[in-house]
């Protein structure tokens, strides 16, 4: 575990989380959530949890984003907050 790398990834994860909840367009928010998951995956690979990292990359990042995008296509993109 390299603490500089850990710190960098944690800051990127935090920026992605704040951007995902503050952006008005729902599709953009979901894509930023996908970026959040990818940074989380890097963080786990860096912590030595390799199995968790590739499960996150294979399942959480792709399947979760696809489900969200499908639901947004079925409903609406606009959001007031």
């Amino acid at each position: 575990m390299i603490w500089q790398l850990d710190f960098l990834f944690l800051i990127l994860v935090l920026i992605c989380a704040l951007a995902a909840i503050n952006i008005k367009d729902l599709l953009s928010a979901v894509i930023i959530l996908g970026a959040f998951s990818f940074f989380m995956c890097l963080l786990w690979a860096e912590m030595g949890a390799v199995d968790v990292a590739f499960t996150e990359a294979a399942v959480a990042t792709s399947v979760c984003t696809i489900l969200f995008v499908g639901a947004i296509i079925k409903t609406t993109r606009r959001s007031k907050d």
Binding site: I21, L26, V30, F36, M47, A49, A71, T75
Partner: peptide
């Protein structure tokens, strides 16, 4: 947040933070 999809995104972030704590 008032939008339901935004609430769900918040739930995802919350879950990931807890998983991150346990892995660490």
């Amino acid at each position: 947040k008032r939008n339901l999809v935004k609430k769900l995104i918040g739930m995802n972030i919350f879950q990931t933070a807890i998983i991150l704590f346990y892995v660490s």
